[in-house]
Nucleic acid binder design. Sequence first.
DNA 1: TTTCGTGATGTCAGTTACTGTCATCACCGA
DNA 2: TCGGTGATGACAGTAACTGACATCACGAAA
Lengths: 192, 192
Amino acid sequence: MVRWEADGRERLAKAALELYSKQGFDETTVAEIAQSAGLTERTFFRHFADKREALFGGQDQFVQGFIDGVALAPHSASPFDVAATAVLVGSKPFTAERRPHSLQRQKILNAHSELRERELLKLAGLAHALASALIARDVGEPAASLAAESGVVVFRVSWDQWLAEGNTRSLVDLERDAFAELGTLVMVSRKP
Amino acid sequence: MVRWEADGRERLAKAALELYSKQGFDETTVAEIAQSAGLTERTFFRHFADKREALFGGQDQFVQGFIDGVALAPHSASPFDVAATAVLVGSKPFTAERRPHSLQRQKILNAHSELRERELLKLAGLAHALASALIARDVGEPAASLAAESGVVVFRVSWDQWLAEGNTRSLVDLERDAFAELGTLVMVSRKP
DNA sequence: TTTCGTGATGTCAGTTACTGTCATCACCGA
DNA sequence: TCGGTGATGACAGTAACTGACATCACGAAA
């Protein structure tokens, strides 16, 4: 018999998602989340830096998926193509089965600017990691940052489309189109 | 004889900037800021939604500069060119004289992720306003969002370069180069 | 088996961001 | 002169977050 059931962190994250979803972010106290997970408030703050962070677990793994994509791009690929490959590979895990969960979470995020800013910070971290990976491939600045940030822009725009009501297309498909569209936009701009 | 000196809000913002800069964001209490401005803590929260917001005044005016740029773009301009015009026009106010102030503020922001997330949220607001202005010009989605977000990416990357140590180039110059560089990156990607 | 170190948790007190409510005061127009 | 308005003060209260120390299960070493 163990004193504590395993995976306190995951239990807390799950309880937070459920409570935020059910009764709202502001209306949920950390003490409530902890109690719902059979732990104390103090323990919550040992696992998560703050109340919002409980919704943002797995960031390292998320970023790693993109970085793995960088490695998969052929050596001859242009910086922009490397970024595009990274985005497409990193988005692979978000399959149709995961959409309901992503949607539930996104609805909570969209309802509170405090949570949206945290999301933006995480995406900025992704862009930074991507840029670093490009620099490691001898891409210079500001090309690396521009390519990385543009890739994340495509990811974000496509992500919104993916979770939009009525959408049936896959995230990766939407991203392919968005990359093409971005290319067209820039082309038209340069060759009128 | 007035009971309160005028411009409580500006005095609070100025006091906050100075205290954050002098002794750090975490080490500064709102009560301290208020006292330094000759007001009370309660009044601070009447002017600013939270402790961070004191560093982000003038957002409306900032965004408006970009929106004005949209109106200045010729009717024949492509969505991407409209966004570029908006960014260049909106960046005009940030002249060399304003650089020291921007630099002082940016150093505070860079030192605290809480403040960086707020900055990202403000930039997301700018991107959204830009996209809306594009849509009002009959640009479709996701082209409008892609163009707007790309423009903001260029702004952000150029902004970092502008404030980098030793830089002497103007923000607008850096942006022109960044737009050209982004175009080249995408071109190379499409025509190998 | 016993002992002891380690890691995760509990307990508790404290600070501070932020909010609701009501009172107060200067100013301005009727 | 009077009443309305807007900005502020005063004060109590909630909840996020932190530091310090105690406790308990578990596993390894003695």
